[in-house]
C-alpha cells in the first residue's frame, strides 16, 4: 500500500507528512454523518419520485419494442406470404408460358404439316395434269400421224389405181356401172 502511494508524487508528500496525510483520506465524523444523511435524502427522493418514472419509461419502452417486434414479425410473415405468392405466380407464368409455347409449337407444326400436305397435293395435281396433257398430246399426235398416213396411203392408192386401170379395166368398170344402174330399176 505504501509502495503504491510512493509512486504517486503528490501523495508521496502525504506519506512523508504521516498523520497529516492520513487525515486527507479519512473524513471528519460530522462530515461523514452529514454526508450519509444527505445521501439518504437524495436516495429516498430518487427512490420515491424518480424510480417509478424510470420504471414506467422502461415498461413503456419494452412494450414499444415488443410491439415493433410483433409488427416486424407480421411484416416478415406477410413478406414471406407475398414472396410465396410471387413464386407461385412466377411458376404459374412459367407454366403458362410453357403451355403457350407448346401450343404455338403445335399450331406451327399443324400449319407446317398442312402446308406440306397441300404442296404435296398440288405437286401431285400438277404431275397428274402434265401426264394427262402429255397423254392427250401423244394421242393427238398419234391420231394426226394415223390420219396423215391414211390420207397419204389413199392418195397413193388413187394414183396407182389411176395408172393401173387400163382400157380393159375401164371398160369392165363401165360395164359394171351399167349393170348396177339396170339393177336399180328392179
Amino acid at each position: 500500500m505504501l509502495s503504491l502511494l510512493a509512486q504517486v508524487p503528490f501523495l508521496a508528500q502525504g506519506v512523508d507528512g504521516s498523520t497529516e496525510g492520513t487525515k486527507l483520506i479519512i473524513p471528519d465524523i460530522e462530515e461523514l454523518i452529514a454526508g450519509i444523511i444527505a445521501f439518504a435524502i437524495v436516495f429516498v427522493v430518487i427512490w420515491v419520485w424518480v424510480r417509478p418514472h424510470i420504471a414506467r419509461m422502461i415498461t413503456h419502452r419494452q412494450e414499444a419494442i415488443s410491439g415493433r417486434l410483433t409488427e416486424a414479425e407480421q411484416a416478415r410473415i406477410q413478406a414471406e406470404k407475398l414472396l410465396e405468392d410471387h413464386r407461385k405466380q412466377v411458376a404459374d407464368a412459367h407454366r403458362e408460358a410453357g403451355s403457350i409455347v407448346e401450343e404455338a409449337r403445335r399450331a406451327a407444326e399443324s400449319v407446317r404439316s398442312e402446308l406440306m400436305a397441300r404442296a404435296h397435293r398440288e405437286a401431285e395435281e400438277v404431275t397428274r395434269r402434265a401426264q394427262q396433257e402429255a397423254a392427250a398430246e401423244k394421242e393427238r399426235a398419234g391420231a394426226e400421224v394415223r390420219d396423215q398416213v391414211a390420207s397419204l396411203s389413199l392418195e397413193l392408192a388413187q394414183k396407182v389405181l389411176a395408172e393401173a386401170l387400163d382400157e380393159d379395166a375401164q371398160r369392165h368398170l363401165v360395164e359394171r356401172y351399167i349393170q348396177e344402174v339396170t339393177e336399180l330399176d328392179e
Binding site: 390420207s151 368398170l173 363401165v174
Partner: peptide, 28 residues
C-alpha cells in the same frame, strides 16, 4: 379415175372410183 358418175337434173348416180375413195376417206 375409173367407172362413171352420172347426173340427171338433181339426181346423181355415182359409181366412180373417186366416189369410192371419198367414202373410204369419210369412213376413216
Amino acid at each position: 379415175i375409173g367407172g362413171i358418175m352420172a347426173r340427171i337434173g338433181d339426181v346423181v348416180i355415182d359409181g366412180s372410183m373417186r366416189c369410192r375413195f371419198e367414202q373410204l376417206r369419210e369412213s376413216l
